[in-house]
Design a protein around this nucleic acid. Sequence first.
DNA 1: TATCCACGAACATACGTTCGTTCAATATAT
DNA 2: ATATATTGAACGAACGTATGTTCGTGGATA
Lengths: 199, 199
Amino acid sequence: MNTSNKRERSTTERRQLLVETAIKCFSEKGFHQTSMRDLATRAGISLGNLYNHFGSKTELIKEIATLEAVEVRQLQILLNASRTPQKALDRFVLIYLEACTDPDSALLFAEIVSEGLRNPEIRGGFQRNREALLSILIQILHDLEAAKGATLRMPAEDCAAQILDLIEGLSTRLAFAGKLPTKKERASLNVGIDLLIGR
Amino acid sequence: MNTSNKRERSTTERRQLLVETAIKCFSEKGFHQTSMRDLATRAGISLGNLYNHFGSKTELIKEIATLEAVEVRQLQILLNASRTPQKALDRFVLIYLEACTDPDSALLFAEIVSEGLRNPEIRGGFQRNREALLSILIQILHDLEAAKGATLRMPAEDCAAQILDLIEGLSTRLAFAGKLPTKKERASLNVGIDLLIGR
DNA sequence: TATCCACGAACATACGTTCGTTCAATATAT
DNA sequence: ATATATTGAACGAACGTATGTTCGTGGATA
């Protein structure tokens, strides 16, 4: 990628802008209530030009669905730097909860789930990312067990999945209520997770 | 309601048929990818006639969203008949899991959630029903605690919400994989719930 | 000069909804 | 009991608009 090329640079910037406004529009109105005209207008470009950057609407949706994932790679690095598995788990929960309760993300997450349930192309990217997230969490659980910080009563993968369920469930409920998590809710979440891992 | 009236009877039957095909269509294609023509064709009636039964598409969606609730009233009765709170809880989990993992329901549930997040009319009915479900579960938890079958480490409402999260989370994952729950998955779910209630 | 971003008009289709009409079931009058 | 009026389910054409996508053109960059 030659960033000294003025054309290419402004083109990638445009594309970035388009993706960002698409995320906004999609999370506000949903995939299928957002028209290509909406997107173009909101991004301040013409309809025809939008098609210069994205060949079709589904292509755009697909890109958003895979992009709107927690940035797993960075998360992995951050957690590797944690001193103890306990701290790693705490960090994981904090970060993922933060990501899920972001107002845009919660709506988009629901949108992606319901879309992914019937659209294989969407499902693929979403599942890949989710498995990556799971495997990180599983690793942490194994570390925890080795350090006697946890005594699992079920397969680590099931436990990890349940932890994600708790976080995502809380996020969804908060989005429904239009609120951010209170201290109490955070506390209950942590208690629930501690119970699940037998800490 | 005069069921000896032939006209009224066939009308309510029609309406029932329409609601059922709407559920099918909506769960297959989603609210916004299903057109009124789709519905009419699928139900074997004309487009115009569809509007004789439902004034608008949103009215139809609203009806489905509130209807597609677990029949809480019956559930309540069934659970009251349970000998012990332990049995009541087991039944609750079994029934709700069954309801959530029904292929149609899982897709429709996701659809309602994502629609409810931005459409207050949908949200209302959904939340009302969910609160009813929660209050049943909370009651069971209190009974359990009184019978020394549980030692909650968090407010009963939070615990109940987390239990629902586990069930719904598992259901969603199963729907994504296109599978029904295995014995192992059911077992892990039960272990998770037992841990949450400190049993 | 060749490339490609940017534009907005144009196209075909799909959508939600309305409309006038038919026709059988019901209510009322004879 | 028979004739007449009223109702409302059922139909499909029609309307207006919105949609995804294509196309030809202009203008800046390489």
